[in-house]
Amino acid sequence: MFLITLSIAVFNTAVQGQPLYDEMSDPCKEKRNTYEMYKEHVLSLQLVINKLQEKYCNVTACPDDWISFENNCYLFSETKTTFEAAKDICNKARAYILEDLSPWEMLLTKAKGFTHMWIGATDIRQEGVYVYESTGSRVTNGDWFKGQPGGGRDENCVVASKDNNWQWHDFPCNDRFHYVCKKTIASARKLLHLHGN
């Protein structure tokens, strides 16, 4: 009976000229939603564990307002700003703008509610040659969205967009987006030690 019903649905869809996918619900959607929910719960638990370790075990040395995760410290911006301003804020904290998003960093970013964020790469120095700001090394494996980069001389800074699964787009550097500063826990400890904390 199911096969007959499915065949009729396929026939009706074909006759009406509409894609079959629109007529039927996505059988994997519920599983994907459940998977995403569990990933977010795991992330939340990991962040709670990190905070408890910081408070009671003195296992990390991230500055106040920074989040520790997997041997790194992260500062999530509260406001949107230009690329240069974001770079200056991160550099003053002896950090750099997040450059490549690992799956966990994507979740951290999603948990903060960002929809767009600066990536620490530009082609300001030479059009079409994107380099990471922290090291000056050339971007060879950028996660570009289809057709990107495409802005020419008017769009020299890189933004990751939630709408496109955090793939990269080039944008004008004077636009305003959120950003994430990143540094290793080792460098944070060294900095705190130098300041006598």
Rank of each mutant, 00 (worst) to 15 (best):
S44R: 13
M24I: 07
W168I: 07
A95F: 04
Y130F: 12
C62V: 03
A188Q: 08
F177R: 14
K182W: 00
L52H: 09
K146S: 04
L191T: 10
W166K: 08
P27T: 04
T184I: 01
T184F: 08
D65A: 11
S44I: 03
Y38I: 12
L43D: 04
P63K: 11
L107H: 07
T81L: 07
I49Q: 10
A111P: 01
R125W: 02
T5S: 08
N33P: 04
L47T: 01
R189A: 00
N50S: 10
W104A: 14
M106Q: 13
P27G: 06
R32L: 12
N164Y: 14
T13F: 01
L194D: 09
P172R: 14
A121Y: 07
H41N: 08
V131Q: 09
R153F: 03
I97A: 04
H193C: 05
Q16Y: 01
L52D: 05
R125L: 00
V131P: 10
I49N: 13
W118H: 08
S25L: 11
G147E: 00
E23M: 14
L47Y: 08
E99D: 10
D123S: 13
K146Q: 06
Y38V: 10
I89P: 03
T60K: 14
T140A: 12
V159R: 12
F69V: 04
D154C: 12
F145M: 08
R153G: 06
C157L: 07
D64A: 15
Y38P: 02
Q18F: 05
D26I: 04
K183R: 11
A188T: 05
P63V: 03
Q167N: 07
W118Y: 07
K110I: 02
G142F: 01
Y21L: 13
D163P: 15
E30T: 11
I4Q: 12
T13M: 02
A95G: 08
Q53P: 05
K110D: 07
L107M: 07
N72Y: 08
R176A: 06
D175V: 12
K31E: 03
Y130D: 00
G128C: 02
P172H: 09
I97T: 03
R153L: 04
C181G: 06
V48Y: 11
E155K: 14
R94S: 07
T109L: 05
N165C: 05
A160D: 04
E40W: 11
A188P: 10
I124R: 13
V180I: 09
H178L: 03
N156D: 01
H116G: 05
L108P: 03
N156W: 15
F11Y: 09
A121V: 01
A160T: 00
T135F: 01
N50G: 15
S102G: 06
S44F: 04
L101M: 07
W66D: 00
